[in-house]
């Protein structure tokens, strides 16, 4: 007798394009393949839709048919290894970057990186912003040893394409996409303000380096040094405060030689 394990393995092969399972039956055996197609379609359609929920701008940019074809290939190569679909799709940007037929669309993987980061931000843990007076008080005591804790949703993307502007152009009522002469690398700050509002801001690359350094645990002073030229500390801090992204402040202790 075949074991249940053999049955499941065979069933998966049938879903992936093989003939229906040997033990599948129906009143009219000639209909088995048509009937089994319901499962094939449910799996392919369900996962394609899940991917489209993460990457709506990619679907718009490519068109529904092209997106569906890529999604099916991605599903075959990177099937979900989790029962939680909001966590599946993280390899899609790299998959797009490696796809030979998309090599002329260098911005596409970057737009996908933005959409994935937005998904992460949407589901990130909650954290209340620090009270302004506490931040002020800690900053005064800390001097150059001030450390800031950022909201768990904060992500910085340093991209070689103007994917942030392209992403924005795909949103309802968004601006026109950038023209060829406006083609330049973009740095994005993606985070969630409060419970529901995911921000996708094009920032200076120095601001991106500053936020990344804070994220990595650097003091404000060191992060400012890492930011490099063209950095405006006040503007960067204002951006973080206005979006409620500073959730804690501390004073660095110990030797950091």
């Amino acid at each position: 007798m075949r074991s249940h394990r053999d049955f499941a393995r065979g069933f998966r092969e049938s879903l992936a394009g093989g003939p229906a399972p040997q033990n599948a039956t129906a009143q009219d055996p000639a209909e088995i393949e048509r009937r089994f197609d319901v499962y094939r379609n449910n799996v392919a359609h369900g996962l394609t839709q899940a991917l489209a929920r993460h990457f709506p701008a990619i679907e718009r940019l490519l068109g529904a048919d092209c997106f569906r074809g890529l999604a099916r290939a991605y599903i075959a190569e990177h099937p979900p290894r989790t029962p939680v679909l909001t966590e599946w799709g993280g390899a899609f940007p790299a998959y797009l970057a490696d796809e030979p037929s998309l090599q002329s669309l260098s911005y596409l993987p970057d737009v996908a990186r933005i959409e994935w980061a937005r998904s992460r931000a949407y589901h990130a843990a909650d954290s209340e912003p620090i009270a302004p007076e506490r931040l002020q008080e800690t900053a005064t005591r800390a001097g150059t040893d001030l450390c800031l804790d950022l909201h768990p949703s904060v992500q910085v993307l340093q991209l070689l394409t103007p994917a942030g502007s392209i992403w924005a152009s795909q949103q309802p009522g968004g601006p026109a996409p950038p023209r060829a002469k406006e083609w330049r690398p973009e740095t994005l700050l993606i985070a969630r303000r409060g419970i529901s509002h995911v921000i996708t801001s094009v920032v200076r690359s120095s601001t991106g380096r500053f936020v990344s350094a804070l994220r990595a645990g650097d003091t404000v002073a060191r992060a400012r040094d890492r930011a490099g030229a063209d950095f405006d500390l006040n503007a960067a801090l204002l951006l973080l405060v206005e979006n409620a992204l500073i959730v804690g402040a501390g004073i660095e202790t110990g030797d950091e030689s």
Binding site: H4, F7, A8, R9, F11, R12, L15, N23, Y39, N42, V43, G46, L47, A50, P79, P80, R81, T82, P83, L85
Partner: peptide
Amino acid sequence: WASHGGVWMHDLLPLP
């Protein structure tokens, strides 16, 4: 069933 060998099909699949 919905998963096998660490892969989730994300459909409710039938069994004998």
